[in-house]
Amino acid sequence: MIILSRRDFFNQAVRLSCAALGILRSSFAFAQNPVSKPAGATVIIARRTDVHVRPGQVSSEIIRTMLDQGIIKLTGAADGTRAWLSIFNPGETIGIKVNAMGGRNICTHTEVAYAVAGSLVNAGFKPQQIIIWDRLTEELERGGYKINRGNNDVLCFGTDNDYEPEPEAAGSIGSCFSTILSRQCDALISIPVLKDHDLSGVSLNLKNFYGAIHNPNKYHDNGCDPYIADLNAHPYIKNKLRLIICDGLTAQCSGGPGYKPQWAWPYSGLLFSRDPVAIDRTGCQIIEEQRKFKGLQTLAETGRSPKHILSAAQRGLGVADIHTITRIMV
């Protein structure tokens, strides 16, 4: 529970108004663009078994192809450039939130993040308008990312200790947000990893934003529910998140969030959606299928049903009903 002073209330109100104006501006841009029809609860899955060139190495070229196929299918645009421009407005700074926590073996592949950044550059965005980010610079480095804070290339760095000075509330959570999220980015792409999580059941898009607050350790009780959902309902995330690309090139069906080779498998796929809940529900189903294949109990049977996905849907963040999610393979 957060109780605000009048001054804080006004501060937050001003901030929220600014955020709302930003959203209105981008919605207006959407309305003007005939190809930018939101895809709703659609999840596109691009799979290529040959994406794994050899153990531990993926093909950047094949990833770029998968990316183009996925984004074009998702947006219905005629080509990649138009697809990206149907989602992002020229002049916007775009944050790419990766998940580097698990180390090299089970983090967002650098090849995926840089392919996304490259596509944005090809679509006309300056490299300096793109920030690949996560909680810690050190974790990004461990994941193979090249840190860049300012030269003429795509930016890449962690929040480290650069958080908003005061905590902000969203339902059950009260946290200081990364200033990369709150101040530097106008729009967001989330690129989580397709993996199991010891407490929340799965760690996909919704949980990816635990890496955007200063105190995620305070929100792991009760399978992280309703904390994950409440966090994603905060305007910084809800209003800025435009696209989710779930990295399932190497996925993990048990033992997460750390890398467990016995439970990792080459799913060799990328999932695309603009619905932050539908993509998690779909990813969860893929993990459940693999668990069944491996003879493991369901997540619910292990007491780790990902309740936060349903909670997120209840907050109006997206669609959790698997029957109303359109899954399209490309």
Binding site: G102, L199, N217, P257
Partner: peptide, 16 residues
């Protein structure tokens, strides 16, 4: 606490 995770206090970590 699972591998690579921290406890509620945030200053202890499970490493392997």
């Amino acid at each position: 606490i699972a591998d690579l995770e921290r406890g509620y206090c945030g200053n202890k970590e499970n490493r392997g």
